[in-house]
Structure formats: structure tokens, C-alpha cells
Amino acid sequence: MISIRKADERGRANFGWLHSQHTFSFGSYYDPAQMGFSRLRVINDDAVAPGAGFDTHGHRDMEIISYVLEGSIAHKDSSGHEEILSAGEFQLMSAGTGILHSEFNPSNSRPLKFLQIWIEPNALGGKPGYQQKDFGRAPGLTLVVSPDGAEGSLVIKQDARLYQLWLGQGEEAGLELAPGRKAWVQLVEGELSVNGERLAPGDGAALSGEARLSFSAVQPVRALVFDLP
């Protein structure tokens, strides 16, 4: 079964310095039919104005992934990490027992665009952690996040895997799913067919009861693919 979450149906927030589109309920946007999918709780498509950002704030008991689409993020947290994430990089912050952090657009001229993703952990508490990596632009599927760090991926505290997908026009790829697993596909750019269903930029697809995901790029594609419990 496939259910499409269209880009123009997402919740929206506009604070002047921040324009955000919410795939699932978040902040002042609430839709009881859109509370997440499996352990995937948040996908926010954020655009941050030059020189602006999120002041220091706290999280706990959540696995938080940031994927930079354009520009860069200046990150600082209470564990002592001060990092710059550039376009194409992934960050995984395990909040655990609690962590404070801030995120800013360090540029005075360029906008910052990134996806903010929250996944519920499989156990509460634990020591906060920070990971960051650029996985390049290899064609096809590249494992980015996993519970065991396979293939050099970032390690998440959940039985979940995240892949990045790059395809040229007309190219294809596939992913086998174990019985009982679910999947979410988030299209960043291009036009993608997933098991026969077309996605446009910003669209998401929730898949249940599918043994295999079949991807075909109608236009050049960048996407994220989640393998979920």
C-alpha cells in the first residue's frame, strides 16, 4: 500500500527569518491524521534567512537528523561541538538524557535550506551524541544512517535505516524490504516513480506491505529513503 503526502498539503510556518513546511504535525501546525509514520516523527523543510537561526534550545530522547540542501549550518551544542555543516552533509544528534544546541545560517548573503528529521529512539535516556558526514553523490542508493554503522553510516538508536538516492534521468534502483518493514520516501528534487506512483519535489510516500521499492527517475532525482520498523 502506498499513500502520497503531497508537498502543497503540508503545514506551513512563516516567521520572516524562517519559512518551514511540515510533513507531520509540528509546533502550531496540528493534524491528527499526520502525527508521523512508524518511528518517523518529523520532516521539516526549512529555509533560513542569511544571518538568522535557531537560538539555543533543548531536546531529549530523540534522534535528530539534519540534511543540508543549500548553504551551511553553524552548529553549537552543550556537549562542546562547534561545527559547520555544508551543502550535502548529514548530521545526526542523539539527544538522549538532554542536550542544548543552536543552529544558525552563518552567511550574510546566502539562504540556508535543510531538512530537519526526527526519529524516535528505541530506548529512552542514554548519553547524548553527535555525528556528521558527507556521503557524496554516488548514483543509486547510499546508506547514510543505520543501527550498526554499516558501510560507514552514522549510527542511530533505532532499528531504522536512511538512504540517500541520486538518479539521472531514466535511471533505476531498487531496495528490498524485510517482512513487516515500512518505508518512507521523501523527494527533494526531480520527478520520481516509486512502485508506479509519481512524486514531485517535496512529496512524500508512505509504503506498507511492500516487499520491494522500485525507483525510476523521470527527471534527475535527489531523494531520501527510510527503512522503518
Rank of each mutant, 00 (worst) to 15 (best):
residue 93 M to H: 15
residue 169 Q to I: 10
residue 223 A to Q: 00
residue 40 L to Q: 08
residue 106 P to D: 09
residue 9 E to A: 08
residue 34 Q to L: 02
residue 66 S to G: 11
residue 209 G to T: 03
residue 97 T to P: 11
residue 202 G to F: 02
residue 181 R to W: 06
residue 2 I to C: 00
residue 39 R to V: 15
residue 86 S to E: 12
residue 200 A to L: 15
residue 160 A to L: 02
residue 34 Q to T: 06
residue 185 V to F: 01
residue 58 G to N: 04
residue 76 K to S: 15
residue 220 P to M: 05
residue 56 T to H: 07
residue 186 Q to Y: 15
residue 62 M to T: 05
residue 49 A to P: 00
residue 36 G to W: 08
residue 40 L to W: 06
residue 41 R to I: 03
residue 150 A to W: 06
residue 12 R to Q: 10
residue 63 E to Q: 07
residue 44 N to I: 02
residue 157 K to C: 07
residue 192 L to T: 05
residue 19 H to K: 14
residue 22 H to I: 09
residue 27 G to V: 06
residue 21 Q to V: 01
residue 153 S to G: 13
residue 134 D to G: 13
residue 97 T to M: 13
residue 26 F to S: 00
residue 21 Q to G: 04
residue 74 A to I: 06
residue 198 R to K: 13
residue 16 G to D: 09
residue 152 G to L: 12
residue 51 G to Y: 06
residue 105 N to A: 04
residue 198 R to C: 08
residue 61 D to P: 08
residue 83 E to Y: 13
residue 1 M to G: 14
residue 189 E to L: 11
residue 156 I to Y: 11
residue 46 D to V: 09
residue 177 L to E: 05
residue 19 H to W: 09
residue 202 G to A: 03
residue 133 K to V: 08
residue 213 L to N: 14
residue 116 Q to F: 08
residue 67 Y to D: 15
residue 146 S to H: 03
residue 193 S to A: 04
residue 95 A to I: 04
residue 222 R to Y: 08
residue 1 M to T: 14
residue 3 S to M: 02
residue 79 S to A: 15
residue 35 M to T: 10
